[in-house]
Amino acid sequence: MAKAREEFGGGASLEDELSCSICLCLYRNPVSLSCGHSFCKQCIQKAFSAQQQSKDPYSCPMCKLQLGPILELRKNFQLCSIVEAFLATTSKEEKSEGSAERKKEVVPCDFCLEQSQPAVKICLMCDAFLCQAHMNKHNAKASQQDHVLVEVGTGGAAVERRCLEHGRLLECYCQDEGQYICVLCSIAGCHKGHSIVTLKEAHDKELGELSEIVTWLQQRKSALATALEELQKSEDQIKTNTKTVTSQIQKLFEEMKTEMIQKEKKILSDIQSNEKKQLADITEAKKEMEQRRDESMQHLQSLQKMREQPDIFLFLKEFKLAMDRIASQNFSVSRMDVEVVQLDQARIDHCRHLMRDFMSNLDSLLQGTHSELTNQIKRNRHISKTRRNLVFCK
């Protein structure tokens, strides 16, 4: 509570300022005298009753200013709101500090004579606090059934229903300036000559506009729901089409990759087979050449050895036999034509040119599908935008 007082800027002195000088408690239903001093309504009425019994003229208990024979007690709405705001703040502080239950300020009924009952409603037309019993009697009268009743403790709401200039209840509505006004504002105030209607008439008119807006919003809601369903269908269709086309393109390229891989394997296999055959032929030729070389070496050694033969007869005999053996054998040198597989730069460039032509043709073939998908997306966007414009233009 101390924190709340500090927030209001005056500590304990603020509570003193908001206290009645008669009962020394916070104001309850404060009223103001013509001198400007304020008191609890019940307190000042008791003070005036005592002055009347002693046949003294009515005077302010504070400044002793004589008030005249006719008393005018004006409810101080602003002071009432300040007190209620102070009580609300202090009660919140007490609750945050561990108070189990906030105590509500009890306001007595203005019509109870002996034992005052707590008021449950405030009649803004009668400017009176009503307990449950007196509220039932109040509402039972046909002339008072249109009176405005608010909960006790809603001082701020009560102030809002009063004209700040005249203090009267706001019963009219100025259509020119769109403001709630009292009767005096429309007769002699700044709204004189304006288009004035009662709050009931303004209420009925606004209800008509409310019904039109509700109908319009319901139509918009239905149209938007239909547009959303169509957009969802378009979205689902695009996703389905994209999934189908993606699967077809992936399958097509998988087939092309498979064909390319098989073609690569076939070409490489042929190259390797040709290599094996040529290598086998070379191996066989090498064996024959090596055998002829070895035989020629043997004959060469034999002939060189004959030079050392001293016996002429044996020399001639051995030489003839050696010549016959040499004549019967093949010492010719055979050559092989090797088939060399090469890819020169011109052939490589030609293959690349063919590949680019193939990719260009493939792109041309698939361009129709891509264009169709792009045009479909544009059409769907245009249709959706047109539908939205039609919906909001209705």
Rank of each mutant, 00 (worst) to 15 (best):
Q42K: 09
F39S: 10
I122D: 04
H37R: 04
Y180D: 14
S54E: 15
I181S: 03
L170A: 05
G189M: 02
D281H: 07
L73I: 00
A157N: 10
R168D: 05
G68C: 07
R356G: 12
P61M: 07
R307E: 15
K266I: 08
V391W: 00
K41I: 07
Q145I: 07
C112I: 01
Q115N: 11
R325D: 15
T226D: 15
H138M: 05
Q272T: 08
S371F: 04
L365C: 11
Q132V: 07
L279G: 11
Q144S: 11
E105K: 00
C131H: 02
D176P: 03
L362A: 09
E275F: 13
C185F: 00
E295D: 14
V340W: 00
E201I: 10
T90C: 14
A327H: 08
K3S: 15
L373H: 05
N241E: 14
A2D: 15
T154K: 10
S186W: 02
E93Y: 00
M289D: 14
G368F: 06
K243A: 15
P69K: 04
R162K: 08
A142K: 07
M260A: 15
D204H: 06
R74P: 02
F313T: 12
Q144P: 02
G36W: 08
L390A: 13
F319G: 11
K394P: 04
C393I: 02
E339H: 08
K221M: 01
A133E: 13
D176A: 08
L71E: 07
K320R: 11
E275A: 13
K95I: 04
L228F: 06
T89A: 14
K385H: 12
A157I: 06
L79P: 11
P30R: 04
Q175I: 11
A85G: 09
R162M: 14
E339Q: 13
K75Q: 10
M359L: 13
K286M: 12
S59V: 00
R335C: 12
K257W: 04
M297K: 09
S360K: 05
P69N: 10
H382I: 07
P30I: 07
I196C: 11
F77L: 10
S234W: 06
G153W: 00
R387T: 13
L73D: 09
G98E: 07
T198K: 03
L169P: 03
E165K: 03
I267S: 11
S143V: 06
R388Y: 12
L24V: 12
S364H: 07
R388F: 14
I348S: 09
D204I: 09
S332M: 06
L67T: 05
F111N: 07
L18I: 04
G189Y: 01
S247N: 13
H299P: 03
I122H: 08
S13M: 14
Q376M: 14
A12M: 09
K205P: 02
G11Y: 03
V391N: 05
S384P: 02
C25S: 15
E229P: 03
C43W: 03
D56R: 08
